Amino acid sequence: MTSIPRFILGALTLCCAVSALAQPQVQTSDPNAPKTRAQVKQEFLQWRAAGYDPNDWLNYPENAQRASRIVAQRQASGDTSVH
């Protein structure tokens, strides 16, 4: 009688493992996909390296736009490293 619950437990475990493997993988190429915390941190570091200062409220729109252009140019050239 104890072999039936073990069989059921094994079948449920197998079903869970198969469904976990069947889940779609996150596509990083989709611009609408949510970003991970590591991706957000990396983008922030790229913006800081491009001259963006989040504490500069007096020049806020301009410094953010300038940093955005610089980061976009670096990404277009294939350079995603933080300088």
Rank of each mutant, 00 (worst) to 15 (best):
residue 51 G to N: 03
residue 76 A to C: 02
residue 64 A to Y: 07
residue 14 L to D: 15
residue 16 C to L: 15
residue 27 Q to E: 15
residue 49 A to Q: 02
residue 61 P to E: 07
residue 25 Q to N: 08
residue 29 S to N: 13
residue 21 L to M: 13
residue 5 P to G: 09
residue 15 C to V: 11
residue 79 D to I: 01
residue 20 A to Q: 07
residue 23 Q to F: 10
residue 9 L to W: 09
residue 65 Q to N: 12
residue 30 D to P: 01
residue 65 Q to T: 06
residue 7 F to E: 10
residue 34 P to V: 06
residue 26 V to G: 14
residue 47 W to L: 07
residue 6 R to L: 13
residue 19 S to R: 15
residue 59 N to A: 08
residue 82 V to H: 06
residue 51 G to L: 03
residue 16 C to A: 15
residue 29 S to V: 10
residue 74 R to K: 08
residue 2 T to I: 11
residue 76 A to S: 10
residue 30 D to Q: 05
residue 10 G to F: 06
residue 7 F to N: 09
residue 19 S to E: 14
residue 60 Y to K: 07
residue 38 A to K: 14
residue 11 A to K: 14
residue 83 H to C: 00
residue 7 F to R: 15
residue 16 C to K: 09
residue 32 N to F: 08
residue 79 D to V: 11
residue 51 G to E: 02
residue 15 C to S: 13
residue 35 K to T: 03
residue 20 A to W: 12
residue 26 V to D: 05
residue 20 A to Y: 13
residue 2 T to A: 10
residue 72 A to H: 07
residue 48 R to G: 01
residue 1 M to C: 00
residue 23 Q to E: 09
residue 73 Q to M: 12
residue 4 I to C: 01
residue 63 N to V: 12
residue 55 N to R: 10
residue 75 Q to A: 14
residue 16 C to W: 09
residue 20 A to M: 12
residue 30 D to W: 06
residue 73 Q to D: 09
residue 68 S to K: 06
residue 38 A to Q: 05
residue 36 T to S: 15
residue 65 Q to S: 14
residue 20 A to F: 09
residue 29 S to P: 01
residue 7 F to D: 11
residue 34 P to I: 05
residue 35 K to F: 07
residue 57 W to Y: 02
residue 76 A to K: 06
residue 1 M to K: 09
residue 61 P to L: 06
residue 51 G to A: 07
residue 7 F to K: 12
residue 23 Q to I: 01
residue 43 E to D: 03
residue 24 P to M: 10
residue 35 K to Q: 09
residue 34 P to L: 10
residue 20 A to N: 05
residue 79 D to H: 02
residue 12 L to K: 02
residue 9 L to G: 14
residue 69 R to Q: 13
residue 54 P to R: 03
residue 54 P to T: 03
residue 54 P to S: 11
residue 78 G to K: 00
residue 31 P to W: 04
residue 38 A to Y: 04
residue 83 H to Y: 07
residue 43 E to H: 09
residue 22 A to D: 12
residue 66 R to N: 14
residue 55 N to W: 00
residue 8 I to R: 13
residue 14 L to W: 09
residue 24 P to E: 12
residue 70 I to K: 04
residue 14 L to E: 15
residue 38 A to F: 05
residue 46 Q to F: 00
residue 14 L to Y: 11
residue 70 I to E: 06
residue 13 T to E: 02
residue 56 D to A: 03
residue 54 P to D: 00
residue 60 Y to P: 03
residue 66 R to Q: 09
residue 70 I to P: 00
residue 72 A to G: 08
residue 57 W to S: 02
residue 83 H to V: 05
residue 46 Q to N: 14
residue 70 I to N: 02
residue 29 S to Y: 04
